[in-house]
Design a binder for these strands. Sequence first.
DNA 1: CAAAAAGCGGAGCGACTCTTCCGGATAGTG
DNA 2: CACTATCCGGAAGAGTCGCTCCGCTTTTTG
Lengths: 232, 232
Amino acid sequence: MTAQAHPPARPLRKDAARNRELLITAARELFAQRGLDVSLEDIAQHAGLGVGTGYRHFASKNEIASALLGQTLDAVVASGEQALTVEDPWRALVGFFEAAVAVQVGDRGLREVFLGVQDTGQIEYVHGRMTVIVTELVRRAQRAGVLRKDAAATDIGMIITMMSAVTEITADFAPDTWRRYLALCLAGLKPGAARLPLPALTEEQFRDAIDHHKKALRPTAKPAPARAKSSR
Amino acid sequence: MTAQAHPPARPLRKDAARNRELLITAARELFAQRGLDVSLEDIAQHAGLGVGTGYRHFASKNEIASALLGQTLDAVVASGEQALTVEDPWRALVGFFEAAVAVQVGDRGLREVFLGVQDTGQIEYVHGRMTVIVTELVRRAQRAGVLRKDAAATDIGMIITMMSAVTEITADFAPDTWRRYLALCLAGLKPGAARLPLPALTEEQFRDAIDHHKKALRPTAKPAPARAKSSR
DNA sequence: CAAAAAGCGGAGCGACTCTTCCGGATAGTG
DNA sequence: CACTATCCGGAAGAGTCGCTCCGCTTTTTG
């Protein structure tokens, strides 16, 4: 589903391959620094190339963004899988939190996705893989008695989103601030506190939450093929 | 500072006054529903008026947005002042949280401001009034022993921002979800939990946080006065 | 060392935004 | 009821962004 470089039927020409890499790294940098709203002209220029070259390698701006974001989201999933191998259930949970938030500190585009400001479309795919992992992390911690019984798997995702908000605001000058508020939430997750007033979201609701509502990554809405002449 | 309707030197003509109200309510509705990015054409049309009429009443789109947002932010300040009159320090604190978040549930534009996605410019003004109130709320609660000693005034603002993130994502179908996560944070704010790893932000840092970095409400960057002829 | 294939770049189109301008409609006045 | 200050509406200027098209350059091939 990810627009991974189409398996090169014929190997790319040398310069083309080089330019492709230039584009990818330029895009990654700009998305991370300035968010998902940078223009493709900026990306191309930042790579020292022309706009047309960008479109030779990627069908649309969304394709670059989706591919890059997908890659990063995969990394988050990976750190979740790794957390499952940690024996101490509480340390595993905390470690996962920290990994998931740490990647966002340097990546504004990623934060925009977690905050639901922008939509890349493929989150549900990642979410599918994630829910199993997180559910297991929660189950283990609860069984060990280190996590309050009324915590749910969806709470973990929501807390990560809250950390995104903190980081979005502080990343520029106090990038570690999220640690303070994660600690605060973790304190609230320990057993023994007062009951939580509402039930957690269901997995389905949570998926809707990060998938619905937001503006698609550029409305684009390419209705008419621009030119009347469809010569090509 | 707020672009309150310039004290009408001469009373507005009847239709003008009516249209002004139409514009304001239309803008408020659209900002609340669709966020701060709605076009001014949409606003005018939603009010049943022409674009030009909008500019007769407001100097720019930013002016409408700022004025409206400012009004809402004033309401938040007011609920803070009211909280100071509650005798139970914990109830006062919780009440303030609830008031501050509740207004955001129906107002997407306001959430965008709290999340630092968009900048209206006048937050620092509100922040100035707020910091005194919140500091007092915190001091009272700590003196009564119901709030952990290492909590700071800036923590309150940050928690509100976290609730903005939750609400931004859930407002469309489970608008009360923030209550669960507020409860979780409140549990973490009770005394007795493990120390928080980092110091809180200073007031100055917090002000920078919600003031810096974000994209101004439309770059606009009106460099040249459009037409060369400066007849008017 | 050609010829052909592949790739490059940027002018340019459509769609959208904010804002201005001004002819024509409207409300208040004598 | 006319007359004028006021106001309305929408066309149009200027800017931005996504994307396409096609003449020109570079790489590969034979």
